[in-house]
């Protein structure tokens, strides 16, 4: 039995492969897109079936707050993208600072969201509350979808923020460098996805009137 002590396969699954990680992240983003996709199908069908009710209900939402949050997310998307540029140029300090801006944007977004939701809940529009249960046909669906979709989106904001916090920690530890920044890239991709979904949620809920 030959003992080829030097033999190892060139294409090992245990090699570091940045391209593979990125591809894995993209594939995961596709599943996220379709997860929300299912909800968009539901939204479309119920909007077709309850046209007027959806229009009426959308007046309950606050366009100013929605627009503000849109801007917040777009800015945070840019800072994440810039932090990748920074780490590629070897400027870890700047990269961390930009990621902190993103993290701050996430917090601002969630705070605005909190005020929006509590206003609705105050009006009794949350599923199970009194006003909600007596809403006319179709309007209940609108608010159910509103809470379900923005709630799921907010959950993604939280996950994204945790991911970015991990990136900050690892960059600070020196584990992410100009040569090895896959995690920053992937966290960035995830954050952009969160932004991407909001880009559709915003007009569909706030701007349809």
């Amino acid at each position: 039995m030959e003992h080829s002590s030097g033999f190892s396969l060139p294409n090992s699954g245990h090699n570091r492969d940045a391209e593979a990680s990125k591809m894995g992240m993209w594939l995961f983003l596709f599943t996220e897109l379709l997860l929300f996709g299912g909800l968009f199908v539901v939204y479309m069908v119920y909007r077709l079936l309850n046209h007027e009710a959806f229009l009426l209900s959308s007046f309950e939402l606050n366009v100013t707050m929605g627009t503000f949050n849109t801007v917040v997310l777009l800015v945070s998307s840019m800072t994440v993208a810039m932090s990748i540029t920074a780490i590629q140029k070897g400027n870890a300090a700047l990269s961390i600072r930009l990621l902190f801006v993103t993290l701050g944007a996430a917090v601002v977004f969630m705070v605005v969201k909190y005020f929006e939701w509590s206003a609705k809940i105050h009006h009794g529009l949350f599923p199970g509350q009194l006003v909600f249960d007596n809403l006319p046909k179709g309007e209940g669906l609108f608010f159910f979808l509103y809470f379900f979709m923005t709630g799921l989106h907010a959950l993604h904001i939280i996950i994204g923020a945790v991911l970015i916090a991990v990136v900050i920690y690892r960059t600070r530890k020196g584990l992410i460098t100009a040569e090895k920044y896959t995690l920053t890239e992937n966290a960035g991709l995830y954050w952009h996805l969160v932004d991407l979904i909001w880009i559709y949620l915003f007009p569909l809920f706030y701007l349809i009137h």
Partner: peptide, 9 residues
């Protein structure tokens, strides 16, 4: 020439 321990392409 194949992808042996590739960093970033």
């Amino acid at each position: 020439q194949n992808h042996n321990d590739q960093g970033h392409e």
